[in-house]
Write a protein that binds this DNA or RNA. Structure first.
Ligand SMILES: [Zn+2]
Ligand SMILES: [Zn+2]
Ligand SMILES: [Zn+2]
Ligand SMILES: [Zn+2]
Lengths: 148, 148
DNA sequence: CTAGCGATGAGACTGATTCTCAGGCTAGCT
DNA sequence: AGCTAGCCTGAGAATCAGTCTCATCGCTAG
């Protein structure tokens, strides 16, 4: 069966470069995770990643998934987001698509949103506090249109 | 030994009233947790609550602590905050002391801060989205002054 | 082509949180 | 005050996400 050769996006390319620069060797498991993340516009849980990869012809061990996600997080190419759902989610960081999340407390739906004034307010605070701010996470809780 | 009779604050009083209104009976475990939370200005983890209560003369079972915190969260008098530390923290909601947190990724220190422009930005978004926003959580990650 | 060493994954382990259920206590009634 | 229904508690088992261990696999420098 012919393998679907997808076009690598900016993110996947940049991520592979950073991995190489950081001294990592190439490996099938990591490539599969990076490739899957590259297709996402919002966050996936480690469990979802495990399932999606298994559904393709490239299952990856759970230990590897967590190890890889941690490496990507440290490299600054992936963001670990805690939406108060007792499990972390991970999404690729694309400078041109910075966003935050609305979480439905009833059905768990996650909706992305972005807002310039909000970012400005956060940047402003970051400069004022005696703290080296490296990132921020903003989550709005409530009920989605369907659950209301 | 004389028991230190503390003055009930606005929060503890209001919480007890809401519990009664919601049809809850009174109970020693819950009263102890509510009283402890009332003394806090920022968030405690369930484990810390368990220890602090045990250190006094009123140990409360772990199951009860979690059950009670969940009830208080549902009543809207306690906020469950996830600071990305693999464990939730809980703090009383005091309308006049609304705040958010700075978390040191190195040592885990939690520092509270508040910012009017930030709240305004969040309120503004809340009104614009097709989502019934009931609350929000903002966490800034980075390195505290000591760990830098 | 081969050795050396990073990459991988099965499964045990940990730690936080949730569940179960027997016994305790409150609130309401007599 | 005494009695009862049913909420309140807590010890310990069960879950579950996430972490660790370690034997094996497979890059890649040479
Ligand atoms: Zn997202
Ligand atoms: Zn919903
Ligand atoms: Zn706080
Ligand atoms: Zn620190």
């Amino acid at each position: 069966m012919a393998k679907t050769k997808k076009k690598e996006s900016q993110w996947e390319t940049a991520t592979n470069e950073k991995l190489a620069e950081a001294g990592f060797r190439r490996g099938g498991a990591r490539a599969a995770v990076v490739s899957l993340l590259d297709e996402q516009s919002c966050a996936l849980s480690a469990y979802e990643i495990e399932e999606l990869l298994a559904a393709r012809e490239r299952a990856v061990g759970r230990a590897s998934i967590y190890r890889i996600l941690e490496q990507l997080d440290e490299l600054g190419v992936v963001s670990k987001v805690e939406l108060g759902q007792a499990q972390a989610r991970y999404e690729p960081i694309r400078p041109d698509h910075h966003h935050h999340h609305l979480v439905c407390d009833k059905c768990g739906a996650v909706i992305a949103f972005d807002d310039a004034p909000l970012e400005r307010a956060v940047d402003s605070i970051s400069k004022r506090v005696d703290f080296a701010v490296e990132g921020h996470e903003i989550v709005l809780h409530g009920l989605c249109a369907d659950c209301r």
